[in-house]
């Protein structure tokens, strides 16, 4: 299985990021990716990604800062509406990077 590292971001870096992290990990596995999940708030994002090879950032809270890593909007994972779209967007980033 291919490996990747995904950061989920929410306001506190606690509740919503954990919610979507588990779902994304499960669904990435179904799509052939073994994902290492990291959780962050917009404030802790820089320290969380430092020294790690992060492939994609999934945001449940808006992240305006450009940290040089592709960002995907992750609200669909919270509401359950548009989950496929979120997963497609994540996979698109991963496949582009590892093609």
């Amino acid at each position: 299985m291919k490996t990747c590292t995904v950061v989920t971001v929410c306001g506190s870096g606690v509740v919503t990021s954990s919610m979507i992290a588990l779902k994304i990990k499960e669904q990435l596995r179904e799509r052939g990716w073994d994902a290492t999940m990291l959780e962050a708030s917009p404030v802790s994002l820089n320290s969380v990604i430092t020294g790690k090879d992060v492939d994609v950032i999934v945001c449940a809270s808006p992240v305006t800062e450009d940290v040089g890593i592709p960002k995907v909007k992750g609200m669909g994972m919270v509401t359950g509406m548009g989950e496929e779209k979120v997963m497609d967007a994540i996979c698109e980033v991963l496949e582009e990077k590892y093609k």
Binding site: C10, G11, S12, T16, S41, P42, S61, V78, T79, G80, M81
Partner: peptide, 13 residues
């Protein structure tokens, strides 16, 4: 305070 910075409203089904 947190709600003002990071809102938590959700439109569900």
């Amino acid at each position: 305070a947190r709600e003002k910075v990071f809102a938590t409203g959700l439109e569900l089904n």
